[in-house]
């Protein structure tokens, strides 16, 4: 118990505390680093562009999570109730792409969405768009498409697990009592699968809110997210104190959201053991 606790203390808890303290510093390096100030907080609160970007990122994360759940639910439902014995093979089929190179799958989306890409060629040949217009790449929509692509398998998994836990005799009972299938779905299956849906939703929401790689690759100017601003504070703007404060705001936001959700599906195996 001691080794993992020490490791987490030193390389997880401590960095967060140091980052917190950095948000009160005047500068990134040298003597300025030693000066304590509240200026960063004042600047952050005064900057509507930071706040607007945070709000925009929250909305993008909500949309992405919602689309993912809506798209993944029927697939998970199909696996559990229709796929029969091939269920576990098909689940692996769905999960496998998610474990291949993330950067390269995004690169591939760049190829699909660019003005000379697969989608444009297709739409062009169908006469749906005009020549030479980048229709999707470098926009927030491109970011959302790429994110949905990245996360879909991860949201399908908890929904699959929740659906699989449902006692099938409940559905038989509903049918025996004359309940039509659609009603049985709405009154039995859907409510019982909601914990899995919620787990999938937040499993996507959190990393999407902090996402910076996907917007950096396919987002362009329109697709900039809060995570990109944090990244640039550390890499190009070299304003570590402001970057720390922005990270801290995001961290606190996450903790508030998580605190509001008293039970997470991902902790269930551990909770049940109590």
């Amino acid at each position: 118990m001691i080794p993992p606790a020490l490791l987490l203390l030193f390389f997880f808890v401590l960095p967060m505390l140091v980052m917190g303290s950095f948000s009160f510093r005047a500068g990134s390096f040298g003597a300025e680093r030693q000066i304590w100030t509240l200026d960063n907080y004042r600047d952050f609160l005064a900057s509507t562009s930071f706040q607007r970007l945070l709000l925009k990122s929250i909305l993008v994360a909500l949309r992405t999570s919602l689309y993912c759940v809506v798209l993944a639910y029927p697939a998970a439902y199909y696996l559990v109730f229709r796929a029969g014995a091939k269920r576990s093979t098909l689940l692996t089929l769905i999960l496998a792409p998610a474990w291949t190179s993330f950067l390269l799958r995004i690169l591939s989306w760049k190829m699909i969405l660019s003005s000379e890409g697969l989608l444009s060629s297709l739409l062009l040949s169908l006469g749906l768009i005009e020549e030479g217009r980048p229709i999707l790449l470098y926009s927030m929509n491109a970011v959302i498409v790429a994110l949905i692509y990245s996360w879909l398998p991860f949201v399908a998994l908890p929904i699959f697990a929740a659906l699989q836990r449902i006692d099938k005799s409940l559905l038989e009972a509903a049918a025996d009592l004359g309940c039509p299938p659609w009603k049985a779905f709405l009154r039995v299956t859907l409510p019982l699968s909601l914990p899995g849906v919620a787990a999938g939703f937040f499993f996507i929401f959190i990393p999407t809110l902090g996402e910076w790689v996907t917007p950096a690759l396919v987002g362009g100017v329109d697709g900039v997210m809060y995570g990109n601003i944090i990244q640039s504070q550390f890499v190009s703007a070299l304003n570590w104190p402001m970057g720390s404060l922005m990270s801290l705001v995001m961290l606190l936001l996450m903790l508030i959201i998580l605190g509001a959700l008293s039970r997470f599906a991902y902790l269930l195996p551990l909770e049940e053991a109590k």
Partner: peptide
Amino acid sequence: IPYVVLGVALLIL
């Protein structure tokens, strides 16, 4: 927690 937060926190440490 978002990876960007973990990344910059370790960088600072």
